[in-house]
Design a protein around this nucleic acid. Structure first.
Length: 480
RNA sequence: GGGCCAUUAGCUCAGUGGUAGAGCAUCCGCCUUUUAAGCGGAGAGUCGAUGGUUCGAAUCCAUCAUGGCCCA
């Protein structure tokens, strides 16, 4: 640091401003390398960070890194002149420069730019991480992602994949006639799923507010209002623990299609993901965590009850009461809370014995009503709903249902959730009178879908931790 | 919340009770087609923090901090 600060003064005394102005570039590093056959002998201008310097006395090679990649530059005293070469010798790894010069190939065959004019654009006051091993310290990689991006080029590729996934989703949905909308992040009630919200406060209205945990209830209001295909691709916030699969804020896609149902949404889901795979990876096949994944539709479908019967050896379709359900869970080897319902018992057994085995992609159908308070009941079995989840690599990828549009049933479900809450489950839904009011105006039969974008991107990028697909994951602030 | 692990130079890492090390980076010298350039030399540390055990602690013990992995 101190040495680099001294260099600032030295540069200024030589008439060089270490924090320069805009620089006109003619090419990117990649363009120079890939377009060599037509660029050889021609003059190009590039800008980027000095990644490596191999000095040879009165000449030097260096690697110039820009967003597209790296290209070697060759700085020769004879050509740039004594003054410029003196300045070049002061430069450090990490400094950002602009160069203009001729494209050529070295004896060893490396495409390079013979520098005629060198411009310092930004002096780096901090040293870069080690060139060979990169930055490995995960704490520093997350806290100082910019250094991670400089030192580990594959990290940029990971995040470019994320960008492409999001773009491909928008392209597909827009092409299907969906409208992208924006609904409130701050609301008096955080609804749409079961999770603890972040609480905040609006000063002028002296109003307690919550940050959204889902976009569901607002998007359904839009269906009531006559929008027929809407989606929101937005950040939601859940005040819960942090793990390789959980970050307190994450990106959720929710979409709603009027006059559709969960069957229609299943088809849409597999087509959407398949489209994204083709757009982003150019293939339907990926290997994730050692499993071969094939996104080609249609995906296998199985009823939750059947999967539980198959993998846990217990048949919940024979159960007639919550008590019998708890007994069946015990038979499968689980101990549950004494008040656990049929739905909770089934879900726990499913999570424990089935979920980890679902490499997928596949659909699991017909979730119990108690854990699906916003989903429509099956007409042939009121304990179950028209709800499915998509699974991939043992993890929930998507959650969808035929939306409950009966305001009276919906009120009953909310009341059931209130009882849950009274029993101490502070993740249960709150009564949302305003949403019920909307439903009373009439919501057409509708299918809805939610997809966790971070987890989806993890599969496409081949990373195992959600923190590796979030640019700036939440960290405890450093205090030193 | 529980268990296990990590924390040593800017970075990557050695160092299991007896004078704090290596490579890269940095600085100085040499070197005009190298590429993890090379050769010679130099500087660089509150060993995460605080206590304790010991003649002596990076090393053993306790607590705390930060992070990671697993579990709830």
């Amino acid at each position: 640091m101190a040495i680099r600060r001294d260099k600032l003064d030295k540069l200024r005394s030589l008439g060089v401003e270490p924090f320069g102005q805009a620089y006109q570039r003619s090419h990117s590093a990649r363009e120079v390398v890939e377009g060599f056959s037509s660029l050889e002998g021609k003059s190009v201008s590039l800008a980027g960070r000095l990644n490596a310097i191999r000095s040879h006395g009165k000449a030097a090679f260096a690697d110039l890194q820009d967003q597209s990649g790296r290209v070697q530059i060759y700085v020769k005293k004879d050509i740039v002149g004594d003054a410029a070469f003196e300045i070049f010798e002061i430069l450090d790894l990490g400094d950002i420069v602009g160069v203009r010069g001729l494209v050529f190939k070295t004896k060893r065959g490396e495409i390079s730019v013979q520098v005629e004019q060198l411009t310092l654009l930004t002096k780096a006051l901090r040293p870069m991480p080690e060139k060979w091993h990169g930055l490995k310290d995960v704490e520093l990689r997350y806290r100082q992602r910019y250094v991670d991006l400089i030192a580990n080029p594959e990290v940029r590729e990971t995040f470019i994949i994320r960008t492409k996934v999001v773009r491909a989703i928008r392209n597909y949905l827009d092409g299907q006639g969906f409208y992208e909308v924006e609904t409130p992040v701050l609301a008096a009630i955080a609804g749409g799923t079961t999770a603890r919200p972040f609480k905040t406060h609006h000063n002028a209205l002296d109003l307690p507010l919550f940050m959204r945990i889902a976009t569901e209830l607002y998007l359904k209001r839009l269906i009531v209002g006559g929008f027929e295909k809407v989606y929101e691709l937005g950040r939601v916030f859940r005040n819960e623990g942090i793990s390789t699969k959980h970050n307190p804020e994450f990106t959720l896609l929710e979409l709603y299609e009027a006059y559709s149902d969960y069957e229609g949404i299943m088809t849409l889901t597999e087509n959407l993901i398949s489209h994204v795979a083709q757009e982003v990876l150019g293939t339907q096949h990926v290997i994730y965590q050692g499993h071969e994944v094939d996104f080609t539709p249609p995906w296998p479908r199985a009823r939750m009850l059947d999967l539980v019967k198959e993998h846990a050896g217990v048949d919940f379709s024979l159960v007639n009461s919550d008590e019998e359900a708890r007994a069946m869970a015990r038979q499968a080897g689980l101990t549950l809370a004494p008040k656990a319902t049929f739905g909770q018992a089934l879900d726990e057994v499913f999570s424990e014995f089935v979920e980890p085995k679902l490499t997928g992609p596949m659909f699991v159908l017909d979730y119990p009503v108690e854990i699906s308070p916003l989903a429509k009941r099956r007409s042939d079995n009121p304990r179950l709903t028209y709800r499915f989840e998509a699974f991939l690599a043992g993890r929930e990828l998507a959650n969808a249902f035929s939306e409950l549009n009966d305001p009276i049933d919906q009120r009953g479900r909310f009341e059931q959730q209130m009882e849950e809450r009274a029993r101490g489950n502070d993740e249960a839904h709150e009564m949302d009178e305003d949403f019920l009011l909307a439903l009373e105006y009439g919501m057409p039969p509708t299918g809805g879908l939610g997809i966790g974008i971070d987890r989806l991107c993890m599969v496409f990028a081949g990373v195992d931790s959600i923190r590796d697909i979030i640019l700036f994951p939440l960290m405890r602030p450093r205090h030193d």
